[in-house]
Design a protein around this nucleic acid. Structure first.
Lengths: 225, 225
DNA sequence: GACGCCCCTGAGAGCACGCTGAGAGCGCGG
DNA sequence: CCGCGCTCTCAGCGTGCTCTCAGGGGCGTC
């Protein structure tokens, strides 16, 4: 899930970037409108966070140009409260939401999530497969009554599998989504972590939620094994 | 005192708007859910009057989305008596009151006044987690009978955690919310203050209300540890 | 039935992350 | 002007997580 941040004030850009990364987003930044446009056209972003006051090509211009070239990525506009621009204009130009500085980071996150939700179907708060459950918000998971202690990596892996139940996910896909899009290490790492997971969520319960599909990948049984 | 009316039937919208204006309210109207959402997010309303049967995005959806993006403005739901929706559902979604059409304007006004009296952000006077309690108004907190002496920063941190019990809050989020939205210092400060807090609220009582979720953040146990 | 590929697993190295103690800076009150 | 308390920085340390590697075993194929 990648986000593009177009913002010329370095400390704001850095704070937003750091925060979004901590929330699991991939982040690209651009310090002016020109670069923002380039990146927005070249890549597929889930959301674009766009400052209005930019050197050179301003946010209005960027937003209009994007829409004109059929880039329909949701755009969230940032601007100073006392700016010369009006929020109504921004929304007319095809922006999807609007936030005035200074704003709380949590609000920014909530807005971004809301934008993402609009496009995607609503996801339930807790993911389950049979008696196996995982709560992304509380960062907890378990099998029936038992709470399971997972490391961050194990948790991320299980979460991904639970989001794609009864579907074979390839090792490459897991590497890209759970690890890093540009992961270059030993792909064996996936097998290792699937092993760790099985020892925690399957073996103690005599179940087998994660099935190996030889030569293809892994499949999580929607009924928990 | 502004009110947002989201209603697609023009004559009802007009009647409600006229009536509310006569009572001294500022009124914005939206004829569908999408516009309603935009306005609700953009502006601060005292109350939102929301019809359930709307073209496109219906009232349920609007209400749920608003709550999900942390807009806590009181919502009063309007709906036809024989509609397919149930009152209980509406309240579950985070609506605050409920009125079936046809309704008398006087009743609508009374309900709106009641909602305003309740106060917009319906916050409990005292936040608790098990025997741990914090009174934001009195600026006091304690564990059971014992009063705890916290510095302002410690207090703010605990308050934030208590407002998000059983949820993992990231260090970034804490930096942004308890410190400053654009905090640039050493993020280690969060660990330091969590340490201070634990020494005051956990160690002396042999409890562990604040749990560390490695690589993600901290979680306050809703039962106080 | 034999071979080869893929997967599994145990051991271990490296290191990132979080915790803590010490102390500097600063504002405020005495 | 001094002392106190709060905030924040910094560096060291320990834990346990992540990842690598190599060997063994299972499954499919020929």
């Amino acid at each position: 899930m990648r986000v593009l941040v177009v913002e010329d004030e370095p400390h704001i850009a850095a704070a937003v970037e750091r925060g979004l990364r901590a929330e699991g987003f991939g982040v690209d930044t651009a310090e002016d409108g020109e670069k923002g446009l380039l990146l927005a056209r070249r890549n597929e972003y889930a959301v674009i966070v766009l400052d209005l006051m930019l050197p050179g090509r301003n946010g209005y211009d960027v937003c209009r140009t994007l829409r004109a070239s059929d880039v329909m990525t949701p755009v969230l506009i940032l601007t100073a409260k006392d700016g010369e621009y009006d929020e109504a204009d921004a929304l007319d130009l095809g922006a999807d939401d609007y936030l005035t500085k200074p704003f709380s980071f949590v609000v920014l996150l909530a807005r971004i999530r809301a934008l993402l939700r609009r496009g995607a179907p609503q996801r339930p708060a807790v993911l389950t497969a049979g008696d196996l459950w995982l709560d992304p918000g509380a960062h907890r998971c378990g099998r029936g009554e038992s709470l399971l202690e997972l490391t961050p990596r194990e948790f991320a892996l299980l979460e991904y599998l639970l989001r794609h139940p009864d579907t074979v996910v390839s090792k490459t896909e897991l590497l890209a989504e759970v690890w890093d899009a540009w992961f270059e290490g030993d792909p064996n790492i996936v097998e290792v972590y699937v092993g760790y997971l099985r020892r925690k969520i399957d073996t103690p319960f005599g179940r087998a939620a994660i099935e190996t599909v030889r030569g293809v990948g892994y499949r999580l049984d929607g009924k928990g094994g």
